[in-house]
């Protein structure tokens, strides 16, 4: 690898430090979809009656679908109706939390491996200490 070429690439957009992106750069396609669906479910969706469904199993006329009711369940969890949310779909509350975590990780990629990074830093300092002791 050429050193000059590397130096020219250094101010490149790909950096691993969190909070580096400016403006709306933290919005990626996937996070836009998750955030948009969460906002829609939490603020605008009508949870009392289901008018239409995106589910292909539902469209085929099958009664059994493991994912149906999840959207309404997330919406109920966001509006504080936890018992109703659990009755609609048990995974509603966990999926709301997991999706929120996913959006945060997507927006600030430096945060994704934070426990691993802390572990590495701890190990590094320990190794330095052990080397110091040996001398």
């Amino acid at each position: 690898m050429n050193a000059l070429f590397l130096r020219s690439l250094r101010p490149c957009i790909f950096s691993f430090k969190p909070f580096r992106s400016k403006g709306l750069g933290f919005l990626k396609p996937e996070s836009i979809i998750w955030l948009g669906s969460l906002l829609w479910l939490g603020l605008f969706a009508n949870l009392e009656q289901q008018r239409w469904s995106l589910c292909p199993l539902h469209a085929l006329g099958l009664d059994f679908c493991p994912g149906c009711g999840l959207g309404r369940s997330i919406g109920m969890a966001m509006r504080g109706q936890f018992a109703a949310s659990w009755a609609m779909h048990p995974l509603g509350i966990p999926s709301f939390l997991i999706l929120l975590h996913r959006v945060v990780v997507l927006s600030f990629p430096g945060l994704s491996g934070l426990p691993q990074k802390l572990k590495t830093r701890l190990f590094n300092s320990f190794a330095k200490f052990a080397r110091h002791e040996r001398r």
């Binding site: 493991p66 999840l70 966990p94 999926s95 997991i98 996913r102």
Partner: peptide, 15 residues
């Protein structure tokens, strides 16, 4: 977490 969600909801109803 996302894997468990996808597995138990058939990938959010395939979407």
């Amino acid at each position: 977490g996302m894997g468990i969600l996808y597995f138990f909801t058939a990938g959010f109803c395939f979407i």
